[in-house]
C-alpha cells in the first residue's frame, strides 16, 4: 500500500506521513520521536494557519467532532493521536515558543502561535493604518471582533495583549483604560 498525501474536505493538504499508522503512536526511540514531533508541530502550525484556529486543547484528542479532527484523526486508516501524545506535543511547542498555555499555569490548552506575537503586532498596526484608525481609541473587543472582518478577527485577547505590548515598546501604541475593559491608541511609526 502506498502512503500518499491527501486533501481534506476543508482543502488542507495532509503530508504522506499522516497516512502512516505509526505516526499516531508516541515513539519510544527518542531520535524517531524528535523527528515525529517536528512533523506534528509543523502540521499543527500550518493547519491552524489554514483554518485560522487559535486554541488547541488536549480534549480535542479525547472527543471527536472538534475543529482539529482533520489532523488529529485519520479515519481512512482508523488512527488518532492519543491525549497524552498531544499533551507532550503542546509542552514541546510551548517550550520552543510556538505556543503559549492559556490560561497560564495549566497545560491542557494553548494558543497556537501560527503567527508570533511580534508578527501579530505588525499585522495590527498595518490594519489600523489601512483602515484609518490611527490615533483613535480602540477597545480590545473592537479589534478582536470588528464589524468588517479583518486579519485579526477572532484573535484571543491574551495574544492581542502581547502584540500590543510589542507596539508599546516601540512607541507605536499606548494602552488606555476604557469603561468596558482595555483599549489601545495606535500611532504612526516614528
Amino acid at each position: 500500500m502506498a502512503l500518499s498525501s491527501f486533501t481534506t474536505p476543508s482543502g488542507f493538504l495532509l503530508p504522506s506521513i499522516h497516512s502512516a499508522p505509526p505516526f499516531f503512536t508516541e515513539q519510544p526511540n527518542p531520535r524517531t520521536q524528535a523527528q515525529f514531533t517536528a512533523q506534528w508541530t509543523r502540521l499543527i502550525l500550518t493547519y491552524a494557519r489554514h483554518r485560522k484556529l487559535f486554541m488547541l486543547r488536549v480534549e480535542d484528542a479525547e472527543v471527536a467532532g472538534g475543529d482539529w479532527d482533520e489532523i488529529l484523526r485519520n479515519e481512512r486508516i482508523n488512527r488518532r493521536i492519543l491525549p497524552s501524545h498531544l499533551s507532550s506535543l503542546l509542552d514541546t511547542m510551548v517550550a520552543s515558543e510556538q505556543a503559549a498555555f492559556e490560561p497560564p499555569k495549566q497545560s491542557r490548552a494553548a494558543i497556537i502561535y501560527w503567527r508570533t506575537p511580534e508578527e501579530w503586532a505588525d499585522a495590527l498596526h498595518a490594519w489600523a493604518v489601512a483602515t484609518g484608525q490611527l490615533n483613535t481609541i480602540l477597545t480590545f473587543y473592537e479589534i478582536a471582533d470588528p464589524p468588517v472582518p479583518s486579519p485579526l478577527s477572532g484573535i484571543p485577547i491574551p495574544l492581542l495583549r502581547r502584540a500590543v505590548t510589542f507596539l508599546v515598546k516601540s512607541n507605536r501604541a499606548q494602552i488606555i483604560s476604557v469603561a468596558d475593559g482595555e483599549g489601545v491608541r495606535l500611532f504612526a511609526a516614528k
Binding site: 502512516a20 499508522p21 505509526p22 505516526f23 499516531f24 503512536t25 515513539q27 519510544p28 526511540n29 531520535r31 524517531t32 482508523n78 488512527r79 488518532r80
Partner: peptide
C-alpha cells in the same frame, strides 16, 4: 531507529 511502532 530502523523501524517505528504502531500501538493502535
Amino acid at each position: 531507529g530502523l523501524c517505528w511502532v504502531d500501538e493502535q
